[in-house]
Design a protein around this nucleic acid. Structure first.
Lengths: 195, 195
DNA sequence: TGCATTTATTGAACTAGTTCAAGCTTTTTT
DNA sequence: AAAAAAGCTTGAACTAGTTCAATAAATGCA
């Protein structure tokens, strides 16, 4: 099992010694998820925190009319969980589905609690990780208010070219909050402006 | 000085003994801010984390064309800071301005570091607070994608009736990501539907 | 108190994005 | 390899929300 990606992710937030990093990783287990499989469904309790080692997931909501809204994509080096459901062990508002053959490293709720108590430095690690995430979500909200659909599309494909290549137009549309038809029209416009 | 509101806020996230709560509060100082005054301007480094005891603030961005977008309002029991700027001590993307005569309790960057080191439980407190905030920002993003302007307006005034009464329509518009004119039209529509 | 400034309302013309429907392409399944 | 299913593209008609302009109302200031 290869924990290098996970270790690198952790090291971005707090300095841990190689021994500490290795110790933390022992709490994480590997799991393979096939394309289309759900790791979490709306209404279930999120019992794990997952780190994507290989593959890609979509994290999304389903509203009363059955419309799906993709909140984010999680490819290599991203986390998948329903944060509220995981920390309070309550019903999840989100679903998480693999859109490729994937491998994750996951930690259960009880193992996570044990990890926090065993190695208090991990508390700081996830504190900083979460604070960084808050800032990122705030920036995304501002982008959504200050950019139109075409600008948001352009921002997405330049900020995440890797992910953009791997997903369908419908998924991009759902992520951007617009219709798939309008994504087609934006693409057409962009092509004719460049040709 | 009255730390009750701050203590109650902390207690929502982690259990601390009365002694610990009191100890934590000694790191926070009171400051009065007059209406219209800025506590942070875009480009400055955010050197404090503030908790609103009395009054109301707007936290907002200014884009290249000079357009302001309100990210959130912070009245009593809310926090004001630029989280990214505070944790990394880098230039802030946001500005924070008092829209009423206000009182805050604030902690400086170095005092916060000292607090984390002196009382490690605080690390957990802010870890949970930040994780809760991530979930809240995710929910807000989903609302923005799945509701139209009228639904968003209605959600805001029913979720935060207190704040809605205290701010102008322009501010609500800026928060909702629509024009002030359209807020007027929504209000008119709502009135005639009820009369 | 009166003047100046900001804020709210309303309407008419406009635009970004949606909806629906049809035909085409690609992927998945058998 | 064929059939089925899902995804993409395009256009025409529509709608939610914007822009601009003018007027009225509220607020701040000397």
């Amino acid at each position: 099992m290869d924990y290098d990606l996970l270790k690198a992710n952790f090291s971005r937030y707090t300095e841990l010694t190689p021994a500490e990093l290795t110790q933390v990783c022992t709490y994480y287990q590997e799991r393979h998820i096939s394309k289309g499989e759900y790791v979490l469904r709306k209404g279930e309790v999120c019992r794990f925190e997952g780190f994507v080692v290989k593959g890609c997931f979509r994290v999304f909501t389903i509203d009363d009319q059955g419309n799906e809204r993709i909140l984010y994509f999680a490819a290599e080096d991203w986390w998948i969980m329903e944060i509220d459901s995981f920390i309070n062990q309550t019903a999840s508002e989100l679903s998480v589905q693999a859109i490729e053959e994937s491998t994750i490293l996951y930690i259960t709720y009880s193992a996570k609690q044990e990890l926090y108590n065993t190695l208090p430095k991990v508390e700081r690690l996830f504190r900083i990780m979460s604070q960084t995430a808050v800032a990122a979500w705030q920036r995304r909200l501002i982008r959504n208010h200050s950019m139109d659909a075409e600008q948001r599309y352009h921002h997405f494909i330049t900020a995440y070219p890797e992910i953009a290549r791997r997903i369908t137009n419908r998924h991009i549309a759902s992520y951007l909050g617009i219709t798939p038809e309008f994504v087609s029209k934006i693409r057409k416009r962009r092509l004719s402006n460049k040709g």
